[in-house]
Each structure stands twice: as structure tokens, then as C-alpha cells.
Design a protein around this nucleic acid. Structure first.
Lengths: 207, 207, 207, 207
DNA sequence: TATGAATGAGTGTTCATTCAT
DNA sequence: AATGAATGAACACTCATTCAT
């Protein structure tokens, strides 16, 4: 794969072009949500967007680039809300807000969220996504806030690991809930919270 | 899809045939572990097994049947160990053992385990796999053992939901650990245990 | 089979596309005439048309759809001439003209005509071809014209049966003549006429 | 194809072998009648015969050889009855008997008869079947019997052509009747007779 | 710039035929 | 001789990608 095969081919300059790119990304989301990975092909996306494959390839050099752009778009949307959670003063409040966000986002478009989680994990994308999702970094930062377990505050590697664990738990539980068709955000958030705060309440392992 | 499209086409009679079937399944596991879903195609599997596609189709009526057989094989391996865990007297011991098993199994062939988890979720397979993975049922049974949270003992739907949550947490954390390349089973098991027992320690939500 | 699996996938919009579709149909005819059903495969047809398989599948959703389109094309050609025959005033003239047409058409591309007759009979196609070939209906209509045997005029089921018989005789004789490599249309038409009019001259069976 | 690829590989010597060959041929007939050309494959035939593919290939060097043997077997069966018809004194009686036989045979196993007619026409078989089916020769001989049209008695080529025509008419009509599912042998035979004797009643063409 | 027609390597699957047991 | 496991060329069909218009 060419090194640039994953990056948007050119920044859209004209307003129309911006619109086309948006339409393509939204179409990609719709197709993925409705038809799953199986129905997710460039022709279907272009058709859904009311554009032609040719246009798709004007803006995305490959199917993977489109997928990646979609992943980034969804992460970005999520990230804005995350920043607000980040601003909360205590660890507990921040985490609770983050859990709430995660549950809410997942139940909105469960298929999409789950499939993007999967795609994100593909080796081709790991590099392009930076060496860790910012979700993990945000979580790690929250674990430095007042009220966080003391054994994590000072031990950065351990804090990162805990952040990874929490991210994995949250993702696992939200994905499963979405797949099961759960609709009650509050109940789901409560249960995830149980796992998260329960995990943090346990003292570190003594070797 | 024909109703029998997922079931083994014929039982191997001769010793040679048994060997071929085994080789095919093992090759499928190897290919999946090494090349991912992308490289998982019938020709590749047959080649890796030192057999021909024709042989593959003698025993598996479709690619999906092969995948399903692999899923079942891995579940079976795991299930034997699970039965032992199930026999432990208290909820805590049983769960701890299950967590240990899960971590161990995942770190052996992380890619394979993760991809099979994914495949397992495909709608085509749900029916063939019984009405839920037995992992979930085993977990639910463990939550009825002595020492389990009292609020779960009597409330079956809630217990099932908790089992789903625990399964999702465990799966999420093991998958992530596998992807990260973690190798220390004990540490991983300890952290998963933290999440599991932490989750169970939290009282039920008051509506 | 999907309900639309036999219908043209999309109407060609550009001039180039129309040309491709025509080339594919003509290539299908050529391959069928030259190599028989055995050599009639999608790759061969595409190659002969100077196109790629992909193009074939842009316009025909399946091999059967291509075959059906070819059947319809040949029927359409024939049908135009049939309408003229239909317009003749007497039963004798109309039938004679029809026999003439049949002989002429068959000797032009004997293999093609015979194989398409065979394909036409396949159950998958019966539905898509309407509830009977119009050849049969045209024949039946001719048997209602002035000069037709009186015992058929009033008895519709019997007339339809006679039409079936005549169609079968004509088809059988033309097929055989084509296979033998006959080239004299007039002689063939005369002999078929003998069978047709001879058949009609015989009084109905007394039970 | 090797020159001997169509001939029975070896004459079965032992009684058991004779039985196997018969079973294979009968199985071939059953499969062809029940599942059509589509289901007619060597494994299916062997299974139906309670034998293995290997055994099939012991006696028939190729699938075509099996098909050919089946064609010959059916022709032979038919031929014995034909000899009796041949013995009748007048042309009319002989032909009537032949028509009757044809109708009867066709309606017994319509699918089989029709498909074998088709196979018979395949170029690969033409050579192996002698330069004309004996059906044609028998018909020609009948047209030399007392009561036959005088213009055919003396003109051998013309008589052969008439025999071809009659064969084609009969085959065409019986095939169609079988396909339609007709069951009344007498009515069918009467109508074929009409065509046959009608055809013969027409004077030769004056050029 | 946008379109959509064209491409063709790649994938799942079948089945006539061979050959070790 | 009989078995049935193994083979692999062949075929229908898909879809990411290119490019003439």
C-alpha cells in the first residue's frame, strides 16, 4: 500500500466538494449501520451518497481511507463531548460522564459503533490512528484527577494500563449491549459504572 | 442457505480422512491467527493444510461450515476446562477460575480468539450455536452459587444480564490485552478479577 | 434465486454501454452456435465480446439472465415476422407463412436455434417467458382463421392441443434439418407443410 | 479424448460385475429421470447404485461412456419392440405400431427419454452411434412396405429423408407431450398418427 | 470536475477423474 | 476388485479501482 493510501487525497476546496465529502461519509455510516461490513462497498456508499464511485475516489484514495475517515469522524464527534467530561473536577464525576457518553453514543447507532470498533483494530489502521486512541489518553488523564486511586496517580505505566482496561471494559459492555438491542441508556451506564468503579476500588496486586 | 449448509458434510471414515479434517481445522486456525479474516479463504486454508480445496469441500459444505466447526472446536476445548471451574463450591472461586481460564486461552492465540469471537456473533451462526453461548449460561450458573450477591440469586433476568455484562467485560479486556501483546496471564487475570468482583460488589440500581 | 436475478441489471445509459450489451448478446449467440452449451460460459462470452466478465455482470445479474436475454432477443426478431404472417387472411396462408419463417430462421443458425429451444424449456425460464411461448398462441389463433378445420374452431382446448402438436412437429423437423446441415429452405418448408396440413386434414378421433 | 473413451472399459466377466453394470445403468436412468441433467453426476449415480465412483470407473472409462451406454440400452430395449412392428405386413400397420410404441415409451419416463434424445444429438456421440440411428433405418424400411406412397418406394434418398422427417416429427411430438405431462397414450398416438399419415398423403413437391 | 462504464484478480464452489488403501 | 479420499481445473460471480468521456 502506498504510504498515502490512507489519507484524504486532497482537501476539498469548494463548498460543493465539502458537501460531497460529508455526504460520502454519512452514506458510509448509513450503509455500515444498515447492511453491515458485508454490504459496505464503495459502489453502495457512492450510490447512497448520490454520487459516483469516481467522485468517491476523488476524495478518498482507497476504501480504507474512507473507512479511516469515518472512524476519525466518529471519534471526533465523540471527542468534543469528551472534552466537557474532562473538565469536570473529580475523577468520579469525569468518569461517570464518560461512561454516560459512551453508553449514549453506542446505543444511537449500535451497528456502526461496533463495526468501527472492529475496523479500528485492523493492523492497517493502528499506525494511522496514532499509537493509542485519545480515548485512552483521556481516561488516563481522568485517573490523575482528585479522587482517583492513589496507587495510580504516581505510577504512569500502571495508570495507562488501567486506562486500557477501563476502555476495553467499556467498549466490550457497550458493544454487547448494542448487539443485544438494549435501549435503556441509564441502566447500561449504571452497570458500566459498577464495573469501572468496582475495578478502581480493588487494591493493586501484591506480587 | 440450505439448512444443512453449516453442518459437516460427512463423517470421515478412514484414518486418512480424520487426519485431513484435523489438518484442515488446524490450518484454518493458523491462517486466521496469522493473516486475519482478510487472508482467511478456502484456498489458503487448504494449501496450509497440505490438501486441496476439493478435500475441504468433502468435509465442509461451505466456508461458513468450516468456520463454525473451528468455533465449535475452540469452544469445546475451552468448555472442558470450564466444567472444572463450574464444579468449584463458591461463586468467588468459580469466577476466579473462569477468569483465569479466559485470560490463559486468550493469550495463547490472541488473534484467533478475537476473530472467532467476532465470527460467533454473525447472525448466520447464532442459530447453529444454540440460543446463547454456554459461556453466558455458565456464568449465570456461577452467580447462583454460595457467595454470590444476594440481589442476583433470586432475580433470574437480572442474573442473566449480569452474566452478559461479565462476559462482555472479560471478552473486552482479554481481546484488548491480546491485541496489545500482553503475555503475563496472572497480571491480566488479576485485573479482570478486579473488574468482575468490583462490578458484583456494587449494589443494584435504585430506580 | 432472487426474483430479479433474471432481469437486466441496469439499462445502459451511455452509447458505449449500449454497444457493450449488444456485443455481449451477439457474442453469446456466437459462442452458443460455435461451441454449444458446453462452451457457453460467462468468461468465454465476455472474451468473445471483447469485454471483461465484470462488464457482463454490470448488465446481466447472472448467466441465466444473459441466456434469457438472448432467448428474448431471438424470439423478438422472429416475432416481428410472425405478426405479418398472422395478418394473412386464411388459415392456410398464415400457416404456410409461419412454416416458411420457421424453416428460414432455423437454417440460419441451426445450433443456436436448437439450443435456445432447449434453454427456453428450462423451468427457471418458464415463468419469465410468460405462460407459454407466444408461438403456441399465434398458432392457436391461426387455427381460428377461415379455412381451419371446423372441429378445431369451436373447441378451444383441442385447438390449443393442436397448436402444441404443430409447434412440436415444426420444431422437431427444423431442429433435425438444421442438425443434418440441410440448406434448402424451400424443400424443408414444403415437407413441414406436408406434415402440418396433413395433420390438420385428419378428422378428430372418435372415442 | 482418447479414442476408446466412450467404450465400455471391459466386458464384465463375473456375475457380480454384470449386476454392478446393470445397477449403474439403472441408477443413471433414475437420476436422470428424477434430477435432470443438472443432478446427473458420477457420484450421484454411483451412490444411487449402491456402488462407489471407483467401481463406476472400472466399467465406464468416462461419464460420457456411461451416458452412451445408457442411450444404447434404451435404444436396444426399444429396438426389440421395433422388430415386431417391422414384421407387420403393410406400411400402415407397421407405422401405426411404431407410433404407438414411441408414444408409450415416451410417456413411461418422459424426462429420461427427452434428455437421452438431447444427449444423443451431442457431436461427441454422433460418431459412436453409427451414422444414423436404427430408428431411421427401420422407418425407411417401413416406407418400402406394401401400401407406402409410391413416390417413395423407388427413390431411396427421398425415402431416407422422409424417414428422417417422420422420426423428427414423432420425437418432437412425444418429447413435447412428455414435457407437458400428458398421460393418455392413445390420444397422443392418434395425433402423431395424424401427422405421420397426413405427411405421407401429400404428393411430392414439383420443382 | 464528475460520471459511470470497464477491468480483472480473486473467491467460493463443483465435479470428473485418479489412486492409495 | 472395490472403496472412497484426494485432486485441481473450471466456472459463476464480486468489488476495489481506473479512466475515457
Amino acid at each position: 500500500m502506498s504510504p498515502s493510501a490512507l489519507h484524504v487525497r486532497k482537501a476539498p476546496r469548494q463548498r460543493r466538494a465539502v458537501h460531497t465529502v460529508d455526504a460520502l461519509l454519512e452514506a458510509a455510516a448509513l450503509v455500515l449501520e444498515a447492511d453491515g461490513l458485508e454490504g459496505f462497498n464503495t459502489n453502495a456508499v457512492a450510490r447512497r451518497a448520490g454520487a459516483s464511485v469516481g467522485s468517491l475516489y476523488q476524495y478518498f484514495p482507497s476504501k480504507d481511507a474512507l473507512t479511516l475517515a469515518l472512524v476519525l469522524r466518529e471519534k471526533r464527534k465523540f471527542h468534543e463531548a469528551l472534552v466537557a467530561a474532562q473538565a469536570l473536577p473529580t475523577c468520579r464525576e469525569a468518569l461517570a460522564s464518560l461512561v454516560d457518553l459512551s453508553a449514549r453514543q453506542q446505543l444511537t447507532r449500535p451497528n456502526l459503533a461496533r463495526l468501527l470498533d472492529q475496523e479500528e483494530a485492523r493492523p492497517e489502521f493502528r499506525a494511522a490512528l496514532g499509537d493509542g486512541s485519545n480515548f485512552r489518553l483521556v481516561l488516563s488523564a481522568m485517573l490523575s484527577k482528585p479522587g482517583a486511586p492513589t496507587h495510580l496517580c504516581d505510577d504512569e505505566p500502571r495508570r495507562h494500563l488501567a486506562a486500557d482496561d477501563l476502555a476495553a471494559m467499556i467498549r466490550g459492555m457497550t458493544d454487547a449491549a448494542g448487539e443485544r438491542g438494549e435501549r435503556d441508556v441509564y441502566d447500561l451506564a449504571y452497570r458500566i459504572g459498577a464495573a469501572v468503579f468496582g475495578y478502581l476500588a480493588v487494591p493493586p496486586r501484591q506480587m
